[in-house]
Design a protein around this nucleic acid. Structure first.
Lengths: 213, 213, 213, 213
DNA sequence: GATGAATGAGTATTCATTCAT
DNA sequence: CATGAATGAATACTCATTCAT
């Protein structure tokens, strides 16, 4: 009889918001942002079309919210207090982390690559990246850099340090580049293969580690 | 009325068809298939909307035609009469070929990756791949294999042959896998970077060759 | 439970009803009936959307209630027991009254004109006017005439009486007509000017009086 | 068989555009802008909903186009080359002109008043009025004033000139004010009365002339 | 009484496709 | 062959109203 408390309402809202975002992410990732209708998402979340707009202002805002949350989640996977110096073990740990994130956030990465492939979207994304960053606020380091930049710097330094004790033929930046390409190729392969077996996944991870550590 | 006139007409028709496909490919690749309207393509090709339907039955058929032609073009880049045995020099040549195709057909690869990212499209694509193959008819070898499979087989054998004279630690299949991942990563990087400088491109190619040859 | 409590509830109810109507009138008048949402009104009144429907059956019924109350208020401004005979002083008083009502009920008049401009609404309004009059019940005279008619009759007779002692050129009905047009023009001007200064307002009133008294 | 010429297409477009604007104006004026749906207008114009958007970008743009055209039409009714000095006969002619425009453009004036009554719209309108004026470009005088201002100035001077030869009691600005109020009242009355008889209309015009000339 | 989550009918708008000329 | 006017099905979004709590 008595109305729900403020907290109950908050609870309902948060839960439903999360549910919608989860279902929408999956739809966007699998069928493409444009091919996914609000109706489809609503159905997937078991609610009416209208209610969608009680939680998100527009389809675009829903997308933004998903991206923001996902980036924050990804960020949360990394140890934010590290000093930036990578030991060999930390480098290995880093690779395992990345590949774990790939698995855990597979749908997000699908969406991410998909979006990166459309000029208009990518530019907006990168602008947000560099610009006001309200969208990626949480994904910033204390010094204001986007955390991806920080990580890249650490890895870069790792490869440069490895140079000492090797011949002149070893170019740390080319090595870094090869590492990145391999990781990217692995990511794309994993993300767009529907049923990649674990054995392949794991042995590839080990191979990457043994190659670049 | 005379055969010659008939032929001329055919020629003009083919030219216009090619023009439409070229413009459409660019639009699809840059803005996305769904975000590109028939009107936009018609404008880009300098013709009216209505005339589009004189050349292609539908937007989807236009897409199919583009894919088919592109695949045939790509196929044409490879020597179809080779025996399947790759020497070291042929392997190097193969890598250079692949990266050249990447450059020459950049827009197609963009479109290709974009399409692969949508379940429905990918499934249809793969079905066509395995099934009746009307779409990819030309891309078949005399023995009926899709040429990609043939190429993969050659490369696979190349890596296996390399094993002789190396220690047990060297696993040719893992090596092959790393090679493929690197190539894929390179492809994705190149395709989705708007102004990748030639120096980076070339030195990466050399690095890949020196690593995997 | 006790009668007093019951009464207190009634009192609170009436107060809240009045508050809602007041806020709604302002919103309707300023932004338009259709452009005003139930949510907006609820917010303005400091209550929830749902509670609105505890006080008014629908948006339309809310509008009806506002109109009815406003008309009754306007009616209350006039002396209902007058005999219908206007002296010169009473005529002057009448004009001052009208212009005062204009000020006091500015928002209502805005809404009123706005509604009169839509065919469907106007027709319904006029039907209610002539017909069962549930809406305007209170605004009726004991003899059943709508009070506007009564007032018009009095004024009409006032103008006719003025004729005696003037030349044939003076047509009382035309004079009445001019008076009404001027009043209407003044009303429209005042109602739709956001910050009309008092000086203009007052001197115009004096001018109207001196012209038509 | 041969396609329509450029001119034929232009002709069709202009005719249909005019038809849509005419029907839309009527709907907007009679039922209100918000209450009129695109479907209704399309039906009234005998075309499909979709075609509406071949001629106007949006409902709002349709409204803008109607207003612009109407204002230009109204402007065309006035002699733009007059010197600004009004003789008595010209003043009379001016009043007759105004009332004629009222008749000819009744629907537009209904719409105009309706729009003026909504805060948001009015402000935008007035901004356009004073500001860049792309909307009302044609309604400007060579010296850049909106023509309404020019006309008001002429009339104002007319009333001031009339003062010479009258007693001190005669205040030309108050007289001007009364004139404007009367005209406005007449306009509103005419515009919102569905079947105003001609006799009333004409005798009122004569009365206004004889009063203020 | 009070809340706001939930619904669904309705509205503006887009766009592939058709068709008269 | 060529044009662009015309159609209609689909889609994002709004908002009055209902209802469980």
């Amino acid at each position: 009889m008595s109305p729900r408390t403020q907290q109950q309402y908050e609870g309902i809202r948060e839960e439903k918001r999360a549910l919608i975002m989860e279902k929408a992410l999956k739809c966007f990732a699998l069928d493409g942002y444009h091919s996914t209708t609000i109706s489809t998402i609503a159905s997937a979340a078991g609610i009416s079309k209208g209610l969608m707009y009680n939680y998100f202002e527009s389809k675009e805002e829903l997308l933004s919210a998903i991206i923001k949350k996902s980036i924050d989640d990804v960020y949360g996977f990394f140890d934010q207090n590290r000093d930036g110096y990578l030991t060999e073990d930390e480098f290995e740990f880093f690779i395992r982390r990345i590949t774990l994130i790939l698995k855990e956030k597979k749908m997000f990465w699908r969406l991410f690559f998909q979006l990166m492939m459309q000029n208009e979207v990518r530019e907006q994304f990168l602008r947000t990246f560099v610009g006001s960053s309200s969208l990626f606020g949480a994904a910033m380091n204390p010094n204001g850099d986007f955390f991806v930049a920080t990580i890249l710097k650490s890895i870069s330094e790792y490869f440069i340090r490895k140079k000492s004790g090797r011949g002149d033929a070893y170019d740390p930046l080319l090595e870094l580049n090869m590492f990145i390409l391999t990781m990217k190729g692995f990511a794309v392969t994993y993300i767009y293969t529907d049923n990649l077996n674990d054995e392949y996944f794991n042995s590839t991870v080990e191979r990457i580690i043994s190659t670049y550590k």
